[in-house]
Nucleic acid binder design. Structure first.
Lengths: 227, 227
DNA sequence: CGCAGACTTACAAAATTCTTACGGTTTCTT
DNA sequence: AAGAAACCGTAAGAATTTTGTAAGTCTGCG
């Protein structure tokens, strides 16, 4: 799950990105409107957190361009202005949510969870064999027992789950788990998978290796094939 | 999602294809206009990235033929010429977008996303008898059971499937399965086929040998011929 | 028959992945 | 604030699997 933060105040941007990374999101930061615009064209994101008071290119313009490209990426607007005019403009231009500064990190995270779920599809709950995953709460259960996953493991599981039964390459994983400047080796991915497998094992959920190509989260066999 | 890149400059073609593969697309390359034309007739693609300055057969001609076959594949034109005349001609002939070289890979990717989004609704699922293949997820199922294929086998199957019922030569296979400077003997192909056949057998899918010419993936017999 | 192309099988090198262990950090506790 | 615990990524060797070749057999065809 990849998020772009467009915010010129580095203190704030840093605080948010840290907090989100700790939760297992891949986060990129853009400190000007132009950078944000470029980043949005370049990469694919699951959410944009957008400050309206950006240098080089106003936040509203970034949003406008984004939507004119027919992108449906959810946008969470951030602003110090408490006048409703910008808020209205933002929502008109297709923003999905709005927060006035100052705000609680906790609340931000809650809204992020709510917004990223939409993009992940319409199912708030993914079930796979004995495993169930709540996309909003970001909690995985095996037979009702909550799984204790690290941020990375959660990110990995989330990515695999939303693509269950499909082949996922290591490069794709790197792209979705790591933000800029924090690329990670393929070996790291192998280690994540190893650790996640151990935790998934008791639930009978399997991550299948496809040598040379990547991994694939095994979909449950049809019911009558049960042994 | 399958993309064909028609571009004679191998450096560029390679760069683009790598970048797109990384994003999860299946990419084929054609280095001459003739090859592109052939590929478009034999394979099925969701997008064509077309350089206008192609040897053997001009890009515009490739586009013209494509449209004269009533194909609606989206086309993104690439050209070094900055005169508008070619651009206009291209758009007249039914190209969907246009980029002048040099360009940013980033922007190209953005446009590719925009163009492929449209056709996203089309089913990327190929069905052949008891075999079904998800082109995006790159997973083959026989009666719902996932097939365990190696990278080579999957590449081979993919190639044959997208050309089901058509003759495919060993040379074509060598070209498609091997990257630059890593040619492989015809015998190797025979071995691949042998291994793939074994795995396909339980699904009743057959690869027919055409002596001296190549192989052909048998299209499903008519329904009442089922045994 | 005899040949060329295709099929099989076996095998060993090459490539990829798994697993474990270990510092460097960050986070949580006391 | 110090210590403990958890987390993360790297490194390195072990364990696997894939892959191409070689060599022999089979088959269709002239």
């Amino acid at each position: 799950m990849r998020i772009l933060i467009a915010e010129d105040d580095t203190i704030i941007a840093d605080g948010i990105s840290r907090s989100l990374r700790r939760s297992g999101y891949a986060v990129d930061c853009a400190y000007t409107g132009l950078d944000a615009d470029t980043a949005l064209m370049t990469g694919s994101y699951d959410l944009l957190i957008l400050d309206l008071g950006l240098p080089k290119l106003p936040g509203l313009e970034v949003l406008k361009r984004l939507r004119s490209r027919k992108s449906q990426v959810p946008v969470l607007i951030l602003t110090a202005l408490d006048g409703t005019s910008d808020r209205v403009k933002g929502l008109d231009l297709g923003a999905d949510d709005y927060m006035a500064k100052p705000f609680e990190l906790a609340e931000l995270e809650a809204r992020v969870r709510a917004l990223t779920r939409r993009s992940a599809g319409t199912t708030p709950l993914i079930e796979l064999g004995q495993l169930s995953y709540d996309q909003v709460g970001r909690v995985a259960l095996i037979n009702g027992q909550p799984l204790d996953l690290s941020a990375r493991e959660l990110g990995l599981l989330e990515f695999l789950l939303t693509r269950a039964g499909r082949l996922v390459s290591k490069d794709q994983l790197v792209d979705h788990l790591c933000g800029w400047g924090e690329e990670v080796s393929h070996n790291a991915i192998e280690v994540y998978v190893h650790r996640l497998r151990k935790k998934l094992e008791p639930g009978g959920v399997r991550i299948v290796t496809v040598r040379g190509l990547g991994y694939c989260l095994e979909k449950p066999q049809d019911e009558h094939a049960r042994v």
